[in-house]
Design a protein around this nucleic acid. Sequence first.
DNA 1: GTCTATATACAGATAGAC
DNA 2: GTCTATCTGTATATAGAC
Lengths: 209, 209
Amino acid sequence: MSIVSEVSDSTKTRTRGADKRRQLMAAAARVLHQQGVERTTIADIAHAAGVPVGNVYYYFKTKDALVQAALAEHSGHLAELTGELDKLPSPLERLKALVGLWVGQRDVAARYGCPTGTLAVELDKRAEGGMDLEAGRVIRLLLDWVERQFRELGLSDPDNLALTLVGAYQGMSLLANALRDPEIMTREGSRLIRWLDSLPDDGTGHRNS
Amino acid sequence: MSIVSEVSDSTKTRTRGADKRRQLMAAAARVLHQQGVERTTIADIAHAAGVPVGNVYYYFKTKDALVQAALAEHSGHLAELTGELDKLPSPLERLKALVGLWVGQRDVAARYGCPTGTLAVELDKRAEGGMDLEAGRVIRLLLDWVERQFRELGLSDPDNLALTLVGAYQGMSLLANALRDPEIMTREGSRLIRWLDSLPDDGTGHRNS
DNA sequence: GTCTATATACAGATAGAC
DNA sequence: GTCTATCTGTATATAGAC
C-alpha cells in the first residue's frame, strides 16, 4: 500500500502543481494584457489565478519570469490559432480567415489593444537584462506564418507583404485602442480583405506577375 | 527705483519660471518616450531638465500633470510639423513629405517607437481618472490633418484613407521597435509612397473616381 | 520661488513555520 | 508543497526652512 499510495500521492501532487502553474500562466497573460506589466502586481495575478499570494514565488522566482510565462502563453495561443487556419485549403482563405479573427476580437482590441503588441511596447521600456526582444520573437512567429502564406500564393516579396499585413493589424489595434473605437477594426478589416482579394493570383497557387 | 526694479524682477522671475517649466515639459516628453511612463521617476525628469528634484512640484503638482505636459509637447510638435507641411503646394506632396519625415525618424522609432503611439499604449493601462483618451486626442489631430489632405485630393472616404495611412505608421513603428529594425520603416515607407502615387487624382485637386 | 528632509505607501522578494 | 510575516528598497508627495 505504501508504495502505491506514495506513487499516487506523488502523481497527484505533480499534477496539482502543474495545474497551478498553468493557472498562473493563464492569469498572467490575461491580467498583464488588461492592466499592463508595470501596473500589475504579483498579488493581482495570484488573485486572478486563485492561488495564495505568497505561493507564487514557488512557481515563478521573479515578476519577469511571470511576464515570460505570459509571453509563452501568447505564443502557444498563436500556434493553436495558425494550426487551425492551416486546415483551410488555400493560403488566401487562411489569410482572410486570420483577418476575420482579428475583426472578431475588435472589442477587446479597442479596450486593451493587441496582447502581444502592447506587451512589446511595454517590454521595450522595461529593458532590464536582454528580454526586450522576447515579445518581438512572438511577433516574428506571426510574421513568418503570414509570409509563408504569401509565398504559397506565389507572390513576390512575401516578406514585405507580411510586414504590411501584420503592420496593418498592429496599427489598427493601436488606433482602435487609443480612440476606444472597435469600428476602426471593422473598417480596416474590410479594406484588408479587399486588398487580399485584389492580389494577383492565377488560381494555381503559383505566381503570375 | 523701487517700482522699476520690482517690475523688472517680477518679469525676470516670471520668465525664468516659464523657462524652467518649458525645460521640464521638454525633458518630460523626451524621457517619458525613452523610458516609458511607469519606469520614469520625477527625479529622472528633473535631472534631464537640469532642475533640482524637489523643485519640480512647484511647477507640476503630480506625475500625471507631467505626463499631460509631455502630451502637450507632442501636440505642439505635431502642430509645428503640419504647419511646415502646409506650406507645400499640393496635398499629395504634403502627404508624401509626411511619410518622408516618418522614415527619417526610423532610428528613433526602431529604438523607442512612435512617441505618441507608445504613450497611448501606456496611458491606456494607467487609466486613473479619465485621462486615458488624452493620447488619443493627439492622434486624432494627426488623423484629422491627414484626412483633410485626402479630402483636398478629392478622394472618397478620406477618413478611411487617413485611418489606413496613420494606422500603417503606427503599425510599422511598433514592428520596427519590437524587432529593433529601422529597415522596416524604410520598406513600409517606400510602399506608402507608391500607394499615395497610385491613388486616383485628376490633377485638379478634385476627385475623379 | 528654491530646495532639503522626510512622511507615506506600496511592491518585490525572502525566511521560515507548517 | 503551501502559506504568513516581514524585510528592504524605492517613488510619490508634502512640510517647511531658506
